[in-house]
Write a protein that binds this DNA or RNA. Structure first.
Lengths: 207, 207
DNA sequence: GCGGAATTAGAGTGTCAACTCCAGAAAGGC
DNA sequence: GCCTTTCTGGAGTTGACACTCTAATTCCGC
């Protein structure tokens, strides 16, 4: 009973195949949705020969899905944190915006947010997955908030700016923008949403 | 070959059962997702006794899904348009915001946006459904834009306010807010996103 | 090296979902 | 009324998918 899901003792090889399964599942579920990817396809993609291996590491598909949620949360935060941790100006905020927009183009505007697509599919029917996603969003939100607060403490932002609310609004606009990017297959909505949010934040700039 | 999907001649009874099928499918797919609802469940909910009836009106499940997309788009716009068409002040904009937030509470913050959930699930793999959704969002966006322009023409909004961009940003923030509402099971993110957007718009108010 | 645990193999099972077929009942058109 | 088309009923088919079982193999600590 180490972490939330008790992980039995894993040998190096065991961990490797477990990781391969999660990574393959994450990729496929991102591309085809959770319901749209079969365990068989996952095994094939992970170069694993037998279903018994999957069920050796996971109780059932739901448990695997939860591991995928954790995996994707980690990936997103690993991408976001370095950009957000050094927010020291409106320009840095715009650099973050540009990086996000560019990341969408890099994947041809398909797939949306790795967390957001899981959220849309799972929130209503998988309480554990939902809880994981809420926790992930909380981390993301606080990374943004920390960035804004850093700006504020540097004196770039007015002291009365509500960084909590702005961070949440920014994250929310981003989620909407990523969904719209996926549907429209272009980033104009994402750009409009982020730019308008940044415009509001700029309104609090001390200049 | 009348409309996009050729509709054969339908008798009154035929149209009635077809409508019942679409309505039942829409409800179930909204609650359980498209992949999560079986044709069998749809038939049961629509009080239709045989699968042959479903396949009499729809070529396959995909075709039914597209009808559901149209159905939901219409429902959303029917709810939104009356609120948006009489935007004549910042207060009216806030009334719209309140109505949207309240609608989420009315459904216990579950389900998200009827169009957004379909968009997340279908955009990447059903081009026809995606096209329908893009068209639906365009209508929604222009309803918002018309409202903002009306405010502008009344002199409530500065002439240099970019209503096109603001409308798109508002819709995008709303989509993100509805997704976050679904995941968090509360409306704080939705409120933060919409309020921040409205704050920006207020910045253009001539007062 | 040896004992026990972790890992892998692969065939198999039961269920369920999408879809089909054919025949019978209702309903218009004239 | 009759003839054509629409609509409905219900049994059936096919495939896929999540998951199981038993047994073999590898690994690790000692």
């Amino acid at each position: 009973m180490s972490s939330s899901t008790e992980e039995r003792r894993l040998t190096a090889r065991g961990r490797a195949t477990r990781d391969r399964i999660v990574a393959a599942a994450a990729t496929l579920m991102y591309e085809r949705g959770v319901a749209g990817t079969s365990t068989e396809d996952i095994l094939k993609a992970a170069r694993v020969t037998s279903p018994s291996q999957l069920y050796h590491y996971f109780a059932d598909k739901r448990a695997l899905v939860q591991a995928v949620v954790r995996h994707q949360t980690e990936r997103v935060l690993d991408f976001q944190r370095p950009l957000l941790s050094r927010l020291d100006s409106i320009e840095a905020l715009q650099a973050w915006r540009d990086a996000v927009v560019q990341a969408q183009h890099a994947r041809d505007c398909r797939g949306g947010c790795p967390m957001g697509s899981l959220a849309a599919e799972l929130s209503d029917h998988d309480p554990e997955a939902r809880a994981q996603l809420v926790a992930g969003y909380a981390q993301w939100e606080s990374a943004i908030r920390d960035g804004l607060r850093a700006m504020q403490q540097r004196g770039e932002l007015d002291a009365e700016a509500d960084t909590d609310r702005l961070a949440l609004a920014l994250l929310t606009a981003l989620q909407g923008g990523l969904l719209m990017t996926q549907t429209h297959q272009d980033t104009t909505a994402l750009e409009a949403a982020l730019d308008t949010m940044i415009e509001t934040i700029r309104g609090y700039a001390t200049r």
